[in-house]
Amino acid sequence: MGNCHRKSCDTLPGVEAAPTASWDTAATDVLHALQSSPAPITARQLRQQIKGRRTTDEELTSALTGLVREGAIHTWPSYRNAARYWHFNPDDYIRDRILEIASEAALSKKELVTRSARAAHRCPQTRVEKNLMELVRSGAMRVGKPLGTSLYYRSGSTKALVTAALNVLTERLLRLGVPQGEIPQAQQHAMRRAPDLSTRILDTLCELEPSPGAPVTARALRARLQDVEKMEFDRAVIGLAESQRVYVTRHDHGWALSEQDRQQLIHDGGANLYVAVARRG
């Protein structure tokens, strides 16, 4: 089992055997305490939590070191110069918090990092920012730039972006002196006048799909909507995908294609090129 090397293997799976049985007990206590803790804790706080046990400081330190080495627990960034420990991986935890916050609201980088660092039990902002950028690179997070402001939001949470963008717009219109009451009316008017490209795309998909929900190539779909600008078309398809009306299929070597062939794919404005679209069932 795991990396347990000792034959009488009455110890934690994955934890290398230590010389004494008391080490086993200490490691078990430490792991249990950390798993029950709602936040990362320092060695001193840990000592408090298991004070009923007869664990020496030396055994505690040895257990912590061994468990960290085996990956059963993790060292967390120091807070007020004290090292902290927890069973969650700090980077995984930070990313979960970023995604959680960004699915509710699209925020500027600074605001998102500050809020996430706080939610991630005061992890340093530099580390949070690094994780944020990794999420952006992996496509789990997106950056939208409506009205010149970069807003970070979770992929698929278009509503968060739209709400934030409308707030920014409203704020700017108010600054220009537009009466507050007129803004919602004008907004409704604009929505009515806008050509409903999304509906056209969905209708065309229905016509082209060989069976319900079967993928249709971007090329075939585009050929039926030639009056629409490519960028507008791409944006509309991505919008439909983000609002969960369609699925898109990524082209795995799209960037290796010629410029001409690439024009037949749907570009999400970032690193992704999509080759097919299918209606969601």
Binding site: P215, T217, A218, R219, A220, T249, R250, H251, D252, Q264, V275, A276
Partner: peptide
């Protein structure tokens, strides 16, 4: 086949 091949097959 992978869906990604759909375009090349059709062309």
């Amino acid at each position: 086949v992978q869906t990604g091949l759909i375009d090349e097959l059709e062309i």
